[in-house]
Write a protein that binds this DNA or RNA. Sequence first.
DNA 1: CACTATCTTCAATAAAAAATGAAACCATCC
DNA 2: GGATGGTTTCATTTTTTATTGAAGATAGTG
Lengths: 172, 172
Amino acid sequence: MCHIVMNGIIEEEKPAALSPLEIEAIEMFIGFLKLIGLPKSVGEIYGLLFVATKPLTMDDLIGRLRISLGAASQGLKLLRSVGAVKVVYSPGERRDHYVADLALSKFASAFIRDELDPRINRAMERIARMETEALLMDEPDKKITFQRIERLRHWMQRGQKMLPWILKFLVR
Amino acid sequence: MCHIVMNGIIEEEKPAALSPLEIEAIEMFIGFLKLIGLPKSVGEIYGLLFVATKPLTMDDLIGRLRISLGAASQGLKLLRSVGAVKVVYSPGERRDHYVADLALSKFASAFIRDELDPRINRAMERIARMETEALLMDEPDKKITFQRIERLRHWMQRGQKMLPWILKFLVR
DNA sequence: CACTATCTTCAATAAAAAATGAAACCATCC
DNA sequence: GGATGGTTTCATTTTTTATTGAAGATAGTG
């Protein structure tokens, strides 16, 4: 952390208030990332990094966004795990510096990989179990139920087909 | 509500416990609908209706899922608004009877219409404001910032292009 | 190696979201 | 019109989720 001398006393430098541009970016990412289940603090961090023209340290984030140490650390961890934030090496500097990876597709593909895909797989197992259960039913419900299960399976397959396509479209 | 006589006293009929098949369906829909931000109770209601071979009343849902009156009413309201649940008329019956609309695309299109689309539009406005803000900046940050804003716009446009396509794919 | 700056973790707290149920509302029947 | 069965609404409570910050771990430094 840098210092400035004032009145002969050493004080912590007050972090610059967020500019209107930064606020727009932050609000925007809070909204989009909340949509895929990410907490506000993660949106704040990514939003600020997205419009930052220089790498920022965790202290910068804590000071300017006024979030806690824990939130900053955890948010960065998540963003790194998703590939949306990178650590850049600053020679001579001890602390890590972070920059945003500008490829927003990172979020979409992480969402698909971490949330959608596993859920579809579990659903497929469920569907199999549901079918063995349905065997025990009596007509006419049995028939109706099989039709519905079949429909579920159909949707899941459609999803599985579609996801790689979406990914390809996004990443390119 | 039906009644049964027991010990000479009129009692409420105990609702049938959920079958394994019903539980699978319910858990499955809880998971998927939570993914698009819908509460558990909505997933429960839709899940049970999806595998129900007969229209169910609100009382049925309350009794079998053990949810409150309010949750049932609000959940059904939401599901109706999305087109995922229909009211069917039962002659002679006073209370409403509900069935699931089996087209799961209803959820996806509602999500796109209610969450994604408006958010993209607001983002476009933000982007415009960000650009006017960026005009005030000094080089070299100015240039970098314009590039980033341009990239944001690019992604939003890509999203706007993609959504109708996804919708078409889903609805068919 | 001892020291210090930095980062991570996690139990406790705060904030946000969902569920509850009583009261208000509505429609139908007699 | 009044009574009754059914539904919606909404203030309160409960549950879930996110944030905080101090303690612990880690790594660079002299």
